[in-house]
């Protein structure tokens, strides 16, 4: 009897453990320079494509539909304000043409943070 009881308890414990252990582990990127990563996302046509509208740093053939991205730390002393702007610029200006990168899942949270950090380095 005792053995049967122990076996049952063990099974119960194993099941509850398997239920708890379903969260995936956060993966950390091996690439060293986050600013380079942010720049790559901002310039890539199929990802951020910021150059379509904005002049940025040494980006080739930038558009002029949006303002040049210069002195971003002066213009956005509060990082969260800039992040919110990239997330959904229509909150501050309903008429803006800028795509809502976060709200519409064009970039994921990690990409968004990398881009914001890169922009603040300009």
């Amino acid at each position: 009897m005792k053995i049967a009881f122990t076996v049952l308890l063990t099974i119960a414990a194993m099941i509850s453990y398997s239920v708890m252990a379903e969260e995936p582990l956060e993966q950390t990127s091996p690439i060293a320079n986050p600013l380079e990563q942010g720049k790559a996302i901002a310039f890539d046509r199929s990802v951020g494509n910021c150059l379509a509208c904005h002049m940025i740093d040494d980006g080739e053939l930038p558009g002029n539909s949006g303002p040049p991205l210069l002195q971003m730390k002066l213009r956005f002393p509060d990082r969260e304000v800039l992040r919110a702007q990239v997330w959904d610029a229509t909150v501050r200006n309903p008429n803006t043409v800028m795509p809502p990168y976060g709200k519409h899942k064009i970039l994921n949270d990690k990409e968004l943070d990398l881009v914001v950090d890169y922009l603040l380095s300009l």
């Binding site: 009897m1 049967a4 009881f5 049952l8 308890l9 099974i11 119960a12 099941i15 239920v19 379903e22």
Partner: peptide
């Protein structure tokens, strides 16, 4: 007492399993 305990555990396991199958 042992029978009761076994039934309880069996019942718990059963309910856990049936709840589990659609979710997991």
């Amino acid at each position: 007492a042992i029978a009761l305990a076994l039934m309880l555990i069996a019942g718990l396991l059963l309910s856990a399993c049936t709840k589990q199958s659609p979710n997991h």
